[in-house]
Design a protein around this nucleic acid. Sequence first.
DNA 1: AATTAGCACTCCATTAGGACGAGTGCCAGC
DNA 2: GCTGGCACTCGTCCTAATGGAGTGCTAATT
Lengths: 357, 357
Amino acid sequence: MVAEVGVSNTQVLNERSLQLLKTLVERYISDGQPVGSRALSKDSDLNLSPATIRNVMADLEDLGLVHSPHTSAGRVPTVSGYRLFVDTLLTVKPLESKDLTRLHQGLSVSEDNSDMIGVASRLLSELTQMAGVVTLPKRELVCLRHIEFLSLSHTRVLVIFVTNEQEVHNKIIHTSKVFSPAELQQAANYLNSIYSGRSLDAVRKAVLKELQDDQERMHQGMLDAVKMAQLAFDQDNKKDDYVLTGETNLMGFSELSDMERLKSLFEAFSQKQGVIHLLDQCMKADGVQIFIGEESGYRAFDHCSLVTSSYSVSDEVVGVLGVIGPTRMAYEKIIPFVDVTAKLLGAALNPKSTTPL
Amino acid sequence: MVAEVGVSNTQVLNERSLQLLKTLVERYISDGQPVGSRALSKDSDLNLSPATIRNVMADLEDLGLVHSPHTSAGRVPTVSGYRLFVDTLLTVKPLESKDLTRLHQGLSVSEDNSDMIGVASRLLSELTQMAGVVTLPKRELVCLRHIEFLSLSHTRVLVIFVTNEQEVHNKIIHTSKVFSPAELQQAANYLNSIYSGRSLDAVRKAVLKELQDDQERMHQGMLDAVKMAQLAFDQDNKKDDYVLTGETNLMGFSELSDMERLKSLFEAFSQKQGVIHLLDQCMKADGVQIFIGEESGYRAFDHCSLVTSSYSVSDEVVGVLGVIGPTRMAYEKIIPFVDVTAKLLGAALNPKSTTPL
DNA sequence: AATTAGCACTCCATTAGGACGAGTGCCAGC
DNA sequence: GCTGGCACTCGTCCTAATGGAGTGCTAATT
């Protein structure tokens, strides 16, 4: 988009126009009012008269970077305008030290990191005064530390497995035959010895391979164990989820004061899958990623922006976190927030820094 | 309140006034507009002129049962008016058969009742088009079925316990010394043999008693087991919680269209403790209980009503469910909804009807 | 050729006024 | 005790008027 504009009309999108666009966006973000030529003339240190500014604005409007709500209002940045702004004009501010301290103390590497995800989400929403969201680490990508089977009733077995992040998961499976506690113990021992330390995804694949390959090679006990593992790590097992906090902060923003919009936004939050899909896309990219307004492709997010960053454990991307707010947000502050939080969360979840099993 | 009114002025609060109040509340609930004397005259089958009705209305207003938004508007019921209405005037309608069917199919006694609470909440919000809330069964009151210990790292032990409702809970405890897997197994076996089938509350009390009483009587293994049980069922373990669904339905109601109100309501929802406290009060009463507007004592609920019922498993009250909506709700329909849902949920969670361990 | 000043114009927001209708309170009569 | 009638109040809706902010265009200036 930026390149295209630059190519199509280098004459128009010169240094000065960009400078003015930047000032306009900054001014609009802080005021929330359409910015007029007079205000821009004073704000920018270009010493241009309002009339000149008006000419530039007309050009920017032709390029679709700004937009006039009506004839005698000032200009407001469009989605493309915001995009150009965050991509090339933005000067990111370093985090304020008090915020940095707050993040560090909240996400310090501690013994109990059972609710790190929740803490991270709360920090994001508290410090940005918008909504914070953090996906749970992708199960497939975290490492298996330990697995255990527990007989509930004849063919119902409770599977318990502990992952890297010290999280405990459980699932009830139905076996084809009845197992004694001793048999279950044996199966667990076998699986632990073979698969402990490998990612859940790798385990699932290995298990499938085992079952397809020569089953004769294995004795009955091993076969049972592998079959149970298959049930336990079944594909449909992955119930992606996220922790969202500070939604209520969004109710303060005037651009979301329309009840219809607000309702559909909150409905999207509670239905989850749309948001999950959106966040999943962000996992592909490595650094901070931004969706502005309609860019997300979800109508409910039309008037919102989403600033995300993936977070990694042991150099492996396992989840995404971010901030949701109105399109008119202070990107230069939010971006470092999200960036730092992602790094700290990754570090806090790192198994190397916790007591080994 | 009702009694007081009746005593203070039996002359005024006669059959006819009550009849008119009833008609007024019904009319207001269905229309949402202040009800004028003309409308009441037509609606009620008392054959009274508007003028007469106005006299009665003036009396009801003196008693604080109705209220005029301004001089030339009709009347609107006050909280006391609603209270009198639901306590003595209301004629509860039986559930529509399609709704009853829906409830039955959703809350049937099935093999997998792991998300019964969520299902119940969703049914309540879906069928009433308001918000549904269901507390998780009180841990103290549910029965222990099985307990297991799993060693994580030297002094960290994962406790897993299965309760009546087929729910699996886990908690990480720190022991004072290092246990071998065999010792942990032995401890679990001991605890299961003694405490299985008793309520968590009873187990906790028994454990405390054991520790205070003669410890000499027990050998070391038993003592270790009891000590671990104490850690596992520690008081602070009870993290009461509830499942709330359909909050977005509330955004449709005009009485909650004020952003300030809506925001504080949703903040109350996400902070949870206030709501939990309110719901806890409802556990004491047995049948359906109703809080109208300010009666709840929480400012955030000022313009809402809460219709609740406790639900029981094996004749023991273990939780509360209910519907949250605007004060102006169709109580005669909501009450049976909540009532029936509570009964069905209790039945669905009943361990007698599920496969024994 | 780029910039600026000036001017006419457009549109929004606010205010004031007036008509209308719904509903009340009160009083006198049945 | 009930009812009809009447004056009154108040909120809503519509209209018109005013002021201000900001634009687009053109002609003058640098």
